[in-house]
Design a protein around this nucleic acid. Structure first.
Lengths: 349, 349
DNA sequence: ACACCAACTGTTACCGGTAACAATAAATAT
DNA sequence: ATATTTATTGTTACCGGTAACAGTTGGTGT
């Protein structure tokens, strides 16, 4: 059961009868190696099955070609986002070191960041949704003490931080304007938890659009849920009670919209005739809701991708300030997906 | 913009006027340090804000206290599973290095494993669903050349491999037996893709249960989907055409069940009176389907947790063969969640 | 008072690469 | 033919810890 030691650069050097530095040059494709020795070294590498230890290389260079990703639950930050992150990181030659921030939270933040820094990640991607003041630590000066570039996913813009995010305000506008285009006059909103930045932005988009259309927006025109289908159902009952004239509702995410559809059925409301519904997210199931849900789509994979690109860009700048790196950016804009919970034959303005 | 160098163990040693070895002893809580020097060292650590470089430690020890996780899409392997993995890894002091195996697949496997080994992960968790022969590489002898413990998530048992999985066969039995208990006589199945191990196991559970109940199982009693809601809808139409007597259906996952519900509505079938439906997975939305879906639950978080425990156990065995490590295992059993797509008042046998 | 042991601390080497600089050999200029 | 480049290769130090072994000190037994 003897574990055979991985061959090291020295083993290769001995076999090829060169110094280990020359081997290093070969594996790093330095041009200053004669073709003859290069071949000899390559042969030795082949013969021994040598592979460079990234661990050793990382240690010696002081950089690890890896990104720390701090997430919460993945649920929010989302499978699609994660795929975008993973693919882009791979494409740019970075590994991902993942950490889950537990609910409890605040006092875990510094240890978590330290754990990543102790492993010398080249950069950190903060993929925790902004809820209440859980980003308040940014004001504590902690950020300034972090010696690697950091990028934040989907949070309110801040002076000191690099943020990659969708404009949820615009998304809310888009949804609400479409309901107006449908000719609806009483457009309610089922919001996500107010403490969530994304939720309050969507709500602000709804509110602003209605006001610009000359409509009054009253507190009883909104009900709040917690993103879950169950809460959407409950919120809809409350909303209908406080706003009986309701003829359309913009729901802050598709899951809650599912609950709304169920509740509306129970109340005997016809959709979309009596009530138009528009969701947010375009989860894969929403095309199979009953009826299929009109919703707002945001390309989460592109979001993750863009975040990694941005982070990598800042890292390269740091390690090779001389070289001009290009940052190609993907536009992040919402898309309206019209299905059956809004009336047919609407002309979009 | 000068980057201040992280203090190293040597800086601490100088400040505390001891050798760096003594500092090492202090941070590793060796008992052989006098209280007086310990305090002096701790003070120096505090003063400098020293933190041990895990990178250096990993390098010097030849182990990284990290697990390589190879996944596909997360979609399948699932958010819940991932949470279980992350939490358990954190609890046991392991970091996670994540890799995404692209669809293309096979020829990517060896490079991917090598990438992990180059970074000296202590163990590898293979979280790619078994589809068709995508696990055939296990027979190539590659596995034997991997110098670290490896654990496979949810695949067919194999001689040479450590597998942590739910018994999907038993899950299929559980679902089907319940439909029998409901008094149904014509129980069809909407299967996942046959190439998926999980799917074929669930189907086998269905088939076996019916046969044991003395019923005939014909090919036209099954239709196959691809896990998506859309495919569930289509499959149901086909199934109904080929098996008109159908009075119950076991659907291999909840998403397809969603499509089935939609299709059944279109056909004017009452649920559960005309058709009983049972899904699989218990995704959060299924409680809000129309009507709420009866389904089979498996605790995916426990699955991920168990996989990490198993892997960690094997790693510890390897690094400290002398110590007897205990492996506490969580039982992985399915649970029947009865909602409204099956008739009320059934006595479970 | 002397040998011996325990408790504590220090020395040296090593993990596997890379960086910076030095040395040698071959090629070109004068 | 000699000085000077240029191309190629080797030497040495270093990254920040840990392991193995070697001292040093003080207390104890006789």
């Amino acid at each position: 059961m003897l574990q055979i030691k991985r061959p090291s650069i020295v083993d290769v050097a001995e076999l090829a009868k060169v110094s280990k530095q020359t081997v290093s040059r070969v594996i790093n494709e330095s041009p200053n190696v004669s073709e003859k020795t290069r071949q000899r070294v390559l042969q030795a590498i082949e013969a021994l099955g040598f592979r460079r230890s990234e661990l050793a290389r990382n240690f010696s260079q002081g950089r690890t070609h890896s990104l720390g990703v701090v997430g919460r639950d993945l649920n929010y930050f989302g499978t699609r986002t994660y795929i975008g992150i993973a693919r882009q990181a791979e494409a740019l030659g970075y590994s991902l070191l993942l950490k889950e921030l537990p609910e409890s939270g605040i006092e875990q933040i510094e240890p978590m960041l330290n754990a990543l820094l102790d492993r010398h990640v080249d950069g950190i991607l903060w993929a925790v949704p902004e809820i209440a003041d859980n980003h308040a630590w940014l004001d504590s000066g902690l950020l300034a003490r972090i010696p690697v570039p950091m990028v934040f996913l989907s949070m309110a813009p801040r002076q000191e931080a690099t943020v990659v995010a969708y404009d949820n305000f615009a998304g809310g506008e888009l949804a609400t304007r479409y309901l107006l285009d449908c000719g609806r006059k009483h457009i309610g909103h089922i919001a996500g938890p107010q403490e969530w930045w994304d939720a309050s932005e969507r709500q602000r988009g709804w509110e602003t659009t209605l006001q610009q259309a000359g409509m009054k927006v009253l507190p009883e025109h909104v009900a709040m849920g917690n993103w879950d289908a169950a809460s959407g159902e409950a919120a809809f009952h409350r909303l209908l009670a406080s706003y009986p004239a309701l003829d359309a509702v913009f729901v802050a995410n598709d899951k809650m919209a599912l609950g709304v559809l169920l509740a509306a059925h129970e109340k005997g409301l016809r959709i979309p005739e009596d009530l138009a519904v528009i969701g947010f997210d375009d989860i894969t199931e929403s095309a199979y809701f009953h009826p299929p849900l009109t919703t707002i789509f945001q390309d989460k994979a592109a979001l993750g991708q863009q975040a990694v690109k941005t982070l990598a860009h800042r890292i390269e700048q740091k390690f090779q300030p001389a070289v001009q790196h290009v940052l190609e950016s993907t536009p992040l804009t919402h898309q309206l997906i019209v299905r059956k919970t809004t009336p047919a034959g609407v002309i979009k303005t």
